[in-house]
Design a protein around this nucleic acid. Structure first.
Lengths: 191, 191
DNA sequence: TCCGCTAGAGAACGATCGTTCTCCGCGTAT
DNA sequence: ATACGCGGAGAACGATCGTTCTCTAGCGGA
């Protein structure tokens, strides 16, 4: 028998992989059990319903996202680079073989009409990201309207890259972000 | 008995409404039959499988999208306004009560892992839109890199507006697009 | 040694899905 | 008038889903 904590981790990461790859409703709990190697009884002891498992997956994704962004931020030197760091993270992500778009957006489209808890979790993650970008813009001394514009580019890049499969989408988004930042800080700062 | 053509239209528009509101897999064919008032036998005579019905809904959505964009384009006077027209269309759309994001993105996230035909249809619509924007940019005399950037803003606005429910997202996207256009046409054209 | 507890494997259950089939009523041609 | 055929209502079917239950093997303590 395996430790309770590792069992939980295995279930969540397996469900994450399967749900993300095939959609939530297309993956049965039996498939999660088989691939995770954890009995149904134990899965349901850890997560009272599939909905709870989906929420745990979303929390897992949030941690991964935050970690990835933090890593990209650590590599940035100037406040301007810190505003652009998220696009570097996207560029890495888009190149991964199993990239299939933003899980929050995918799950929202599939489940938000039926599960208000999923809808709420997705909304929280997106507003949290918006606050994060707003903080970066504020620290760089940029105007308030810049942050939502950068967020739009990041969101659009994720869906476009998912559908077209073109990793260069991240570079387009980054170039657009550089232009917006340059314009927001006045013509003088562009040099 | 109703005409074959009207029966088909009723089925498609009903399926469109239900699939878009609740997700494809959450809506059974029985629900489509009940709300459309067309018997299952007839539905399956018109569409051999649910997958075919989904594809018909996507074609229907494409027509609606093209019509809406064309209407916004007709109201634009200058080549610059024509590049921005899509954001005016988005602003209208986001204010509708039943707005729930881009159906193509939602369906893609839900079904692309299982139905390659749906994935292909979504890809076609997105590349068609990209070509359209590229044409508008070319007609306005803008540089080639501008079109994908404007597309990213439009895509990001759709998903962000869907999740946050804030119609002002369209205005943010439009403002960013104006900045990108201004920068792409050189500082002189900004006046 | 025997007992009680835990957990795994998977059968079982009720619901629901996509799809097909049966039955029946009605309009039409002869 | 009668036979025929089309289409509507919805029952039926097999599959699959989320969830629960049963059975059994293994293990620690008296």
């Amino acid at each position: 028998m395996i430790d309770q904590e590792t069992a939980r981790d295995q279930v969540v990461s397996t469900a994450d992989r399967l749900f993300y790859a095939h959609g939530v409703q297309a993956v049965g709990m039996d498939a999660v059990r088989t691939e995770a190697g954890v009995s149904l009884k134990r899965i349901y002891a850890l997560f009272p319903s599939k909905d709870d498992l989906v929420l745990a997956v979303l929390r897992h994704r949030t941690e991964q996202w935050d970690t990835g962004v933090a890593r990209a931020l650590a590599a940035a030197r100037t406040p301007r680079d810190r505003m652009l760091a998220v696009f570097d993270f996207l560029a890495e992500w888009f190149r991964e073989d199993d990239f299939r778009g933003c899980a929050f957006i995918n799950f929202f489209g599939e489940l938000a009409g039926g599960s208000s808890r999923v809808a709420e979790a997705v909304r929280e993650q997106k507003t949290s990201f918006q606050r994060h970008v707003a903080d970066l813009v504020r620290e760089a001394g940029g105007p308030g309207y810049l942050a939502p514009q950068l967020v739009l580019l990041a969101e659009g890049a994720q869906t476009t890259a998912a559908i077209t499969g073109d990793p260069a989408t991240a570079a387009h988004a980054r170039a657009a972000a550089e232009t917006l930042i340059g314009a927001a800080f006045g013509p003088a700062s562009r040099f």
